[in-house]
Nucleic acid binder design. Structure first.
Lengths: 240, 240
DNA sequence: CGGTCGATTGATGCTACTCAAACTTAGTGG
DNA sequence: CCACTAAGTTTGAGTAGCATCAATCGACCG
């Protein structure tokens, strides 16, 4: 079921009626699969649909004129890649597949009809975009004021919590197929520095990462280092 | 009219029916005025209403345990301070008045009814929150990859464009009543460094800033330094 | 006129960058 | 199955940007 991860996550946030799940599924077309490195959306595109990530890992990337690149968002299975394109229309960034990914799409026309006929569901989708914004704000705090080490620790905590909510992580481990260079572009640092910070996290006995599988060796201490408070992910059930 | 700036801005983004403006105004209560430094919303609050900024300047702030503070968003007249609290419920940051501000409020119940009865207007409010997220993403790019000077230049370009769209700036000047210390908390740098970069922008003949009034002396060159592209502010009219 | 807030300047040191090279791993074709 | 290649990771050395600490200066205000 392509909506598995999305539904699991949404149910963490608010009660969802059975027919609402069916409404979502009726809007989807696909699936389609892309290889790592594929640019799913290009800067300046005006797509007529939004994309739901079913499997894999994608990054929203902006590139400056000197080639420096910043990844402004990581999307995991169950996340919409560009639900905001429904309202924004023109995208100012590109979306790249960081590993092999599978997606399904939803036409903007369907979303528009949804706001007319299923206001509750529309509010839940609105919620998804405001959680994205809350994650953005945490990244701003990380980039602006957290040390490199805390920034990296925070990203591990956040990614674990998000994957766990989507039913794709155990209590202390999750799959993370990303290169250190891409990780550096997420954290706004050089790949060399990212590598050294990773070594420090390993040396401090906080994480283990090999073969695309991350283990949180001491989740409690990692959260302390990161000053991680998951409130912003809105994973408590409260209807709107 | 308390909605003046909001309506001016929204009309830049999409056609707005006269009765829709009336619907918004009917939801508002207030106005209320706060002195500079007042904390309008406290971290952890679960407000039952959202707040529209009518006049003044507010910042969304997160503070780390060592006291370092990051301002993650600047709100100007015509912006909702916390429209996202309608869906998020619990706020993980505080909102502070950076100078004397006037606000009006909208109960979340009214917003909920609005999504049931006025879907088009609901989409326009959804758009406001996705533009907030787009601004967040640009700040992430700034903090992660832009130089200090470009970061500051970008903020001046962005703030000018936003105020201009809300009918509160001329082609090359706008009011900006903020201390250098608060500006530093926006840009993720020390106040000393912010001061030195400001001197450089002045020395390079790019801006003039005195008495809370900013003049862009060479807007074209400032945009080049900042690599500013206003697409993300979605100031072209296109209905959704 | 002293006090407070904000802006400015100087000196010093750390964080993280850059460049460059070596090493490791995974994938490919003979 | 192994040599070869490409991609990714790791290490070292030198350096730039920015933080921190501390002091001074100017403007406004009771």
């Amino acid at each position: 079921m392509p909506t598995q991860a999305l539904i699991t996550k949404m149910v963490h946030r608010a009660p969802l009626a059975a027919d609402e799940q069916a409404v979502i599924e009726a809007m989807l077309s696909g699936p389609r699969t892309y290889a790592a490195g594929t640019e799913l959306v290009r800067q300046g595109d005006q797509p007529g649909f939004s994309t739901l990530l079913v499997a894999g890992l994608c990054g929203r990337a902006s590139t400056l004129s000197d080639g420096r690149r910043q990844i402004t968002q990581l999307s995991v299975a169950g996340d919409f890649l560009d639900l905001h394109s429904f309202t924004l229309r023109t995208l100012d960034h590109s979306v790249v597949a960081l590993n092999q990914t599978t997606v399904v799409t939803v036409p903007h026309d369907s979303l528009r009809r949804l706001t007319e006929t299923h206001p509750h569901l529309a509010r839940l989708l609105w919620l998804e975009t405001t959680v994205d914004a809350a994650i953005h704000r945490q990244w701003i705090v990380s980039l602006g004021r957290r040390s490199g080490l805390a920034r990296m620790a925070h990203l591990f905590c956040e990614t674990h919590a998000r994957l766990f909510a989507a039913g794709q992580a155990t209590l202390d481990s999750f799959a993370l197929a990303i290169t250190q260079a891409d990780l550096a572009d997420v954290l706004g640092m050089s790949a060399v520095h990212a590598n050294r910070l990773l070594q420090q996290l390993r040396q401090d006995g906080l994480i283990h990462w090999s073969g695309h599988e991350v283990t949180l060796l001491d989740p409690e201490r990692l959260r302390t280092v990161a000053e991680f408070d998951p409130t912003y992910l809105r994973l408590h059930r409260q209807d709107i």
